[in-house]
Each structure stands twice: as structure tokens, then as C-alpha cells.
């Protein structure tokens, strides 16, 4: 559906590139998770696919067509659901839907039909005459999503669609996004919630500093990650042991008396247990195996705080 080929982009005021020779493929009908810390380049990539900005280098193709041509021939095929509540708080839910259907050039009959369908999909029937500004956070997210569906797009760009909602609304939104994928739509989904991405995305890409760090199916990304050992100890890790392990592993300390070592093949486990005993330490908990998505993400993007 979308082929991103060696795309680079640098903002006029920036000293470094927001995107640096990115190459990605988003298959038709897939639910593609785009992950990255703040400032990684996710929004720039979404803006490029949405046609808000044009790539300075490289190409983006949609169904084999240059993106600009595709957008011209299929004006409503790509829809963006931004992270902001991009609608009019002084209009009712129904009025907002009618407006956004209207600016897509749909005639009155189509506007009504699509609005009804979007209201039904997002379960907004009970609030369709309520002012959008008076809705709860969850209902606002649902309206934001419903507006994105009005043009019956084939590609939906969802920018953190579950931020700031209660668990019930979050589950509803995730189910709705799955339904959209099942109905044949292609969805590109950005989020900071790794469990969401693990739960619903069939393909993911982790990007940082404008580069793709990992991409593929969830199994491929997790499978490519090196095995990790997590330890919870009865005492602090002595400095001498920390330095010894750092020579062979990446060592992090995610909590009090907790240590993470990567990579740790099974063959290395006896030596680590021996080291602990030699320093008089007892492991209270030990977990060895494949990393989950959050661990992979943290490992790839490092733990430094981002703006």
C-alpha cells in the first residue's frame, strides 16, 4: 500500500535530519505500529504520508503511484486522525461530522450516510446532538476517529489515538482499530503504549533520530533481540562486579537491587550465578529469556530522557 524509499527530511531551522534515508513498506490491510521516543521522527513521517509536507529526498508511493498523484486521483483515500482533538468544540457531534464530510466534497446524501455510519461505528448515537466541547475525553477520541472515517479511507493514519482516555474507552478504541484492519483498511498507528502495539499491530517499526532501528512482524523484531537476564538481588550490586559484567554485557539497573544484562546466552548463566555467589549475593528473582517489546524498545533507543 505504502512504500517509503530512502526518504530524508530536515526542517529549515534544525541542524539534524528529522528523517534520515528511511525505507519502510506498509502492506495493504496491515496494522502497522510506528514506535519511537519523542523527537524520533514519527510525526514527520506521518506528515509526509498524509501529504502535509513533501520529502526533500527519496520517494513515497501509494499503490505504486507517486503519493502526490495518488492523493490527486484518490482525494479521500488517506485520512489523518491527529493526536489533537481536531474538531470544533462549539459544534455538535453531528454538525462536526456533517462539516468534515462536506469539506471532503461529499454530496448531502453521502454526508448523511457517512455521518450515520461513523456515528454507529464510534458508538456516538447517544451524544450526536451534544456540543463536542462538552464531551468526555474518551468520547472526544471516538469523535476524532469517527471524523477520520468519513471519507471511507483506504489508509488511516492514527497519531496516538488513545492518549488521555480511561481503560474502557481505550479497549473500545483498540477493538475499533482492529475492526478497521479486519475490514480491509490499512492502518498506521503511532503510540507510546507498547502493550497496545504488541496487542494489535501485525507489523512494527521502531525509529529514533530519524532512522529505522528495527522493522518487521512483532515476532521478527522480538526474535531479533538478544536474550536478556533480569535479576533482583538481596543487596546492592558491588562496583567490582558491575565493572566485571560491563566488560561482557550491557548492564542496566532499572530499580533498587535490580539488574538487567543483555545479551545473556544460556551458556553464560552458570558463570553469572558463580559471580553472584562469589560476592555473597543471593538472587531473589531471576528471569531469563526473550525481551518484550518495551524492553526491545528501551534497549534500541537507550534510556536517556527525551524532550
Amino acid at each position: 500500500m505504502i512504500a517509503i524509499e530512502r526518504v530524508s527530511h530536515r526542517y529549515r531551522s534544525a541542524s539534524t535530519a528529522a528523517l534520515d534515508t528511511i525505507t519502510l513498506d506498509v502492506g495493504r490491510g496491515s496494522l502497522f505500529g510506528l514506535l519511537g521516543p519523542n523527537g524520533a521522527g514519527k510525526t514527520t513521517l506521518i506528515s509526509l504520508i498524509a501529504g502535509l509536507i513533501a520529502p526533500q529526498q527519496g520517494h513515497i508511493k501509494a499503490d505504486g503511484q507517486a503519493l502526490a498523484d495518488f492523493r490527486r486521483t484518490h482525494p479521500n483515500a488517506i485520512a489523518l486522525v491527529p493526536q489533537d482533538y481536531a474538531f470544533y468544540p462549539m459544534l455538535t457531534v453531528a454538525e462536526n461530522l456533517a462539516f468534515f464530510a462536506g469539506v471532503q466534497g461529499l454530496d448531502r446524501r453521502q454526508q448523511q450516510a457517512r455521518s450515520r455510519e461513523a456515528i454507529r461505528f464510534a458508538r456516538l448515537e447517544s451524544v450526536d446532538r451534544q456540543l463536542a466541547g462538552e464531551l468526555s475525553g474518551g468520547l472526544r477520541r471516538r469523535l476524532n476517529l469517527a471524523i477520520g472515517l468519513l471519507g471511507d479511507p483506504t489508509l488511516l493514519l492514527l497519531d496516538e489515538p488513545t492518549v488521555g482516555v480511561d481503560p474502557q474507552s481505550r479497549h473500545f478504541l483498540l477493538d475499533a482499530i482492529r475492526d478497521l484492519r479486519n475490514s480491509g483498511k490499512t492502518v498506521i498507528y503511532t503510540s507510546h503504549y507498547m502493550d497496545e502495539v504488541e496487542a494489535i499491530c501485525d507489523r512494527i517499526a521502531i525509529i529514533d533520530h530519524g532512522r529505522v532501528l528495527a522493522a518487521g512482524t512483532l515476532a521478527e523484531v522480538l526474535g531479533a533481540a538478544e536474550p536478556q537476564l533480569q535479576l533482583r538481588l538481596d543487596h546492592d550490586l558491588p562496583q567490582a562486579l558491575l565493572e566485571r559484567w560491563q566488560a561482557a554485557h550491557t548492564v542496566t539497573t532499572p530499580g533498587t537491587n535490580c539488574v538487567c544484562l543483555t545479551p545473556v546466552p544460556v551458556a553464560a548463566l552458570p558463570q553469572i550465578l558463580h559471580d553472584l555467589a562469589a560476592h555473597g549475593l543471593t538472587p531473589l528473582a531471576l528471569n531469563h529469556g526473550q525481551q518484550n517489546l518495551e524492553q526491545v524498545f528501551m534497549h534500541l533507543t537507550r534510556r536517556s530522557l527525551r524532550d
Binding site: G51, P75, L80, Q83, Y88, V103
Partner: peptide, 20 residues
């Protein structure tokens, strides 16, 4: 009031993706 709200809340961005 409306124009600045459109700009701040991403509505202009959304309209731009709809080629308005």
C-alpha cells in the same frame, strides 16, 4: 477566535490532509 482554535487544535492540519 475560530481561526486560531483551528490552528492550535490541528483542525487546519486535518483540513490540509483533506486537500482543503
Amino acid at each position: 477566535a475560530v481561526f486560531i482554535a483551528e490552528r492550535q487544535h490541528g483542525t487546519l492540519q486535518r483540513l490540509a490532509t483533506q486537500q482543503v
